[in-house]
Structures are given as structure tokens and as C-alpha cells.
Design a protein around this nucleic acid. Structure first.
Length: 578
RNA sequence: CGGGGUGUGGCGCAGCUUGGUAGCGCACUCGCUUUGGGAGCGAGGGGCCACCGGUUCAAAUCCGGUCACCCCGACCA
């Protein structure tokens, strides 16, 4: 360790917020080079490689074949699928000396598809699963949390190619099993949740989320086993009701009621003979959307029950790949029919604004909503009688306590780090590149694809996030940079020599040993050992004279004295290296 | 995009209000002492004070501009 390229820091880096970021920097695993771009130092690289190896072994075991594409890619394949445009500013683009367009690959569906098309032509060649572990580039709006969300990151991406939908389902299931094995081996606490199936296809898609407070994804789960990313939660629609037994819609003068709270308070003091809650009101939020490559913005009104906010993440996911933005003052000024705070379905329909509502807003339900003039609202506006929305949209926030979509119990919410995503792509890419296999009847069969990702570098951070304490990191054995951290506690030559000899014996027994032979004081070494996080710490010190060494479990803090004579055997056993 | 904050040796920070020789802790080098929980003493090395311009006899400090980075918000009808 006196020669290891490592310098630990006593203080947290100023720009780090989350535990994994602080600890990986302090313990000398990574160093920042630019926003969202990190170097891997020796300790970090060992962990990264270990994670990568677990992923590789399980991918190989499921029959996938590893290949490697360049990260620097030409524009043309991405043009064919419109993703050169769709990816927008999230892609790193560059030009070669002749002015040709290139990009740094954010993902490789196009290349895999083209490569399979180039090699395989017969139904006998299928199915096939290919993967790579490779550096990806995405110019994220806001890189954050160290290596949790970087602009350069290591990803395993694999793609399955099948002749039939049943084959795709099978490839998908095999990936799901492999992922479970991988994340189990890495010692992670994780959940598998339903994810957005995406605009094209509506096919199956699930995410693997490592449970963590610092995660960017919110998911919900119910007691009956239901689990989903909030973006993918579908709201059960209540049954439609008759429209003709409802009281007529009536416009009321409701002064100074631009918000839901003020409106509800006013209604309840207006002597209408009933009590209103925010859930009886219909809130119409105006946004504008723009498809990638399109010139102008299109207006969209989103109607949700007044007791719920619009969840911009859910709305964004529902409108993918279109871009969404809230209206600005200038947009309102340009459209006088939009009376801020008093917008109702009437003006929207009259002016051709697309109006999508929450699934709870079904035919026959009556709502309090804006009357399209200042200080006026309309009560008992009935869906299907007084207005008809253009459709439904999942945009209202999902809350803990909401009924579970599987009909069992209520939902609870938690946060997670997306570590894996499996997705039945279908024929989108095969169609774009006409990827066919010649069938037994000599007719072409369009191939169907799946795409499956694991954030390898992100996994390092996710593991650190789940496995640390106030002293530092605590690595699972499957990814630890060393098997044993051997601390030389004492300056006497005998102690030093004894430690070196033990290190050699352990090395010969196949253990990877980090020997702290620095001349620093014991306190410094113990603190560093805890920070670095190797699961087993061995101390060779004053006990050596009486033939004992000390073995500490990093996770539990438990110390045991072990006779030097049986130390190698004991440690081989302990680290599972037999 | 909006709001807030910060740019000073490798890291963490002070100094700026009130202009006048650039400091502290950690880390690093050398010497002596010390060695089971972040040692002590002494001596050192290392800085275009983000950048550009202005004011001034004099600018890390005041003024104007630019850039970068961090955090928060993307929140409402």
C-alpha cells in the first residue's frame, strides 16, 4: 500500500451530496474530470471490473455472445430511425475533418440491428442474443451524484433477435432471470417494477430499481405484489354513470378564487346546500408540446382532479418523445381566451385546444371548473353532457395510499436507482432496417427484438449507496477490490516481517491482499481501512509475539483473535476462496 | 429555462465589508521524537486569488462584463 496509487481524503468533497459520491471520492476510488465525467483510480477500477465480470458471466451463462462496437459512430444509422433528431441535445455530436457528422453512442440498437442483418439471413440462424459492455455518452441536462448519473458511463446492453413473438417473450424471460442472478450476486436490495412501455408498441417493459433514498426514480408497490415506476402506474377508471339524472350546470360568481383552495373555501360558504372538496373540482393545466424536429409548439390542456398536482415526469413520459413545457406569461397574453385561474372545457373546445383528462374523469361525473371568465366557475359540469374530452392521459400525481391497480390494498411509495431495464422492443428497428430472415417456405420473416440494459458503472455507486456506514464503504465479497486488508500495526521489524510473510502466504493461497505497510500511525491506518471498505481487515501487531493476529469483520465490527499458525486456513475459509 | 450560491496551492476553507508584503487546516518533503484509533516539535516546497476590462500611486478586495461549477425549482390554473 506504500506504493499503491491512492490518497484518501479526510474531508468530504465540497461538490458531493450523496453518500456514494462522497465516499468513492474520499476513499480514492474515483476522481472528477469534468461535470458527469470521472476517472477510475486503481481501487475503483478493480470494483468496476468485478461488477463487469459478474455481469459478463451471467450473460454468457444465458447464451448471449459478447461483441464490441465503437463508441464513435457515423450519423447515417441514426438517421434511419430518426434518432439523430429525436435524441436532440442529449447526444454528443462531432464532425470529422471533412465535415462528416459523427456522434458518441448513447445506445446501440441501430448498430446491433445492422450487424445482424449483415451476417444472418436464414431462419436457422435465429434466435440470437448479442451484448456488449461499453462506454456510453449522453449529454445529460443535469449530471448529478457523482457516478450515479454521468455523461460518460459504462453500460451492458444486449439485444435479442427472434423470429416470433413467443421467442421474444422467451428471450425476455431469460434476461429477467439472468438479471435476478446478477443483482443477487452483487448483494443488492432491489425491486422489479413495471415501466413505461413507450410510445411505440405497448410491449412489456420492466425496470430493476435498487432501493435507495437517493434514487431518482419513484416507484409504488401494493400488498398484492404490484410494483411499478410512478411513470407507469395506470389509474383505474371508475364506471361511467348516466348523464341525464344530474342537476344542470350552473355558472356562479366566485370572486377571488384563482386557486383550488380559495375556490373550495368559497363554495362551502356560498350556501349551495352541499359540501365541496378539492376532489370535486377539475383543474385544467395548460402545457405546450413539441415533437422532435417540429417547428412550433402545440397547446395541450390536461384536466386532473383538483386535489392532485400534475406530475411533470408522468406527463413527460406519457407524451414521449414530445417535449413538454409549461405555458409562459407571453403564451397567455397571446391567447385571451385562456383566463388564468378560470380555464374551463368550453373555451378549450371552442378554440381547438386538445384536452386530455385523468382517467377518473369519466362520462357522467360532475365537476366544478372554470367558466372562462374572471371570478366565475361552473358547478355540475357533466362529462358526456356538457363537455367531451379528447381522451385520457396519465399525468396526475400518484400518491401513497392510492388504491393499488391490481385491486389489492393501497400503494406505498419509495425511491430507487434504476440499475437495469428490460424491454420488448418489437419490430421498430427491424422495420427501420428491413431485418428479415428467410423462412422455411422461402418467404421473409420480420425479426422481432428485445433490448436490455444494465448500468455497470452506476452499479458501483448503487452498491456503495446501499452498503456503507459512518466510517466508510463496506463492499460485498463479490465486488471488493481486495479480499483482505492487512494492517501492519507497529514499527518493530518482527511485526513488519511477520505481516509481509502472512501476506505472501495469503497471496499464494489465492487471496488478493492489500498490505498497509505505510509508516503512518495505527489510527490513520485503521481509519483508512474502514474508509476503503474491504470486508475483512487483518491486523498484525503486538499480538504477534504470542502468535496471534486479529481479524475484523468490516460490516459487523466484530473482532476475533486467530492463531498465526491457522490464519491462512481461517482466511481462505472466511473469504470463500477455497 | 428560472432562482440562489461559489470560484483563493492537490483537498477543505479564511481573507473581500474598510484596497497596502496571500493565510489556516489536511496532504506533501527533510530532521528528531513518537507508534493499537486520524501523533509532537522544528525546518521546507508549492498559488496568473476563474477570465477580460475599468477605477486607483496601489486591486484577491471596489466597479462592469464574461465564463465555469454547485444546489434548488422545474409546481400550477
Amino acid at each position: 500500500m506504500s506504493s499503491l496509487f491512492l490518497r484518501t481524503l479526510r474531508e468530504d468533497p465540497a461538490d458531493a451530496e450523496v453518500p456514494s459520491h462522497k465516499l468513492l471520492v474520499r476513499a480514492g476510488y474515483v476522481r472528477r474530470i469534468a461535470p458527469g465525467i470521472y476517472s477510475w483510480l486503481p481501487l475503483g477500477l478493480r470494483v468496476l471490473r468485478a461488477v463487469e465480470q459478474v455481469v459478463r458471466e451471467e450473460m454468457d451463462a444465458m447464451g448471449a455472445q459478447e461483441i464490441q462496437f465503437p463508441a464513435l459512430l457515423p450519423r447515417e444509422p441514426y438517421e434511419a430511425t430518426n434518432r439523430w433528431t429525436e435524441y436532440g441535445p442529449n447526444i454528443f455530436r462531432l464532425k470529422d475533418r471533412k465535415g462528416g457528422d459523427y456522434l458518441l453512442g448513447p445506445t446501440h440498437e441501430e448498430l446491433f440491428t445492422l450487424t445482424v442483418k449483415g451476417e444472418f439471413a436464414s431462419y436457422k440462424d435465429y434466435p440470437v442474443v448479442l451484448y456488449q459492455i461499453q462506454t456510453k455518452y449522453r449529454d445529460e441536462e443535469r449530471p448529478r451524484a457523482g457516478i450515479l448519473r454521468g455523461r460518460e458511463f459504462l453500460m451492458k446492453d444486449s439485444y435479442s433477435f427472434d423470429l416470433t413473438d413467443e421467442g421474444l417473450a422467451e428471450s425476455y424471460a431469460k434476461h429477467r432471470d439472468a438479471y435476478i442472478k446478477i443483482f443477487d450476486r452483487l448483494g443488492l436490495r432491489y425491486v422489479i417494477v413495471s415501466a413505461m412501455s413507450g410510445a411505440m408498441g405497448g410491449s412489456a417493459s420492466e425496470e430493476f430499481l435498487a432501493e435507495s433514498e437517493t434514487g431518482e426514480d419513484t416507484f409504488v408497490r401494493g400488498p398484492g405484489g404490484y410494483a411499478a415506476n410512478v411513470e407507469a402506474v395506470t389509474t383505474p377508471a371508475p364506471p361511467a354513470q348516466p348523464v341525464d339524472d344530474k342537476p344542470p350546470a350552473q355558472v356562479h360568481h366566485t370572486p377571488d378564487t384563482p386557486t383550488i383552495d380559495t375556490l373550495v373555501a368559497f363554495l362551502n360558504s356560498a350556501g349551495l346546500g352541499r359540501t365541496f372538496t378539492a376532489a370535486d373540482t377539475l383543474k385544467n393545466v395548460l402545457v405546450k408540446t413539441r415533437l422532435p424536429g417540429a417547428d412550433g409548439w402545440e397547446l395541450l390542456a390536461v384536466g386532473v382532479p383538483g386535489d392532485r398536482e400534475v406530475d411533470m415526469k408522468r406527463l413527460g413520459a406519457a407524451l414521449e418523445p414530445a417535449e413538454v413545457a409549461l405555458l409562459e406569461e407571453a403564451d397567455f397574453a397571446a391567447r385571451p381566451f385562456l383566463v388564468k385561474g378560470y380555464i374551463g372545457p368550453g373555451a378549450l373546445a371552442a378554440n381547438g385546444v386538445r384536452f386530455l383528462v385523468d382517467p377518473r374523469i369519466v362520462t357522467g361525473t360532475a365537476w366544478v371548473t372554470g367558466a372562462d371568465k374572471p371570478d366565475h366557475h361552473v358547478v355540475d359540469l357533466v362529462v358526456g353532457r356538457d363537455f367531451t374530452p379528447d381522451g385520457t392521459i396519465e399525468a396526475a400525481e400518484v400518491r401513497a395510499g392510492d388504491p393499488s391497480p391490481d385491486g389489492q390494498g393501497v400503494l406505498e411509495a419509495a425511491r430507487g436507482i434504476e440499475i437495469g431495464h428490460i424491454f420488448q422492443l418489437g419490430r421498430k428497428y427491424a422495420d427501420a432496417f428491413s431485418l428479415d430472415a428467410l423462412g422455411p417456405d422461402s418467404k421473409p420473416v420480420r425479426i422481432t427484438m428485445g433490448s436490455y440494459g444494465i448500468g455497470v458503472s452506476r452499479l458501483v455507486a448503487a452498491i456503495a449507496e446501499q452498503s456503507h456506514d459512518e466510517h466508510g464503504l463496506v463492499w460485498p465479497r463479490s465486488v471488493t477490490p481486495f479480499d483482505v486488508h492487512l494492517v501492519v500495526a507497529g514499527k518493530q521489524a518482527e511485526i513488519r516481517e511477520g505481516a509481509e510473510k502472512l501476506a505472501e502466504q495469503l497471496d499464494a493461497a489465492g487471496l488478493r491482499v492489500l498490505l498497509d505497510d505505510r509508516t503512518a500511525s495505527p489510527g490513520v491506518k485503521f481509519a483508512d481501512a474502514e474508509l476503503v471498505g474491504v470486508p475483512t481487515i487483518v491486523v498484525v501487531g503486538r499480538g504477534l509475539a504470542s502468535g496471534v493476529i486479529e481479524v475484523k469483520d468490516r460490516e459487523t465490527g466484530e473482532r476475533t483473535e486467530v492463531a498465526l499458525a491457522s490464519a491462512v486456513e481461517h482466511l481462505v475459509e472466511l473469504t470463500g476462496k477455497r
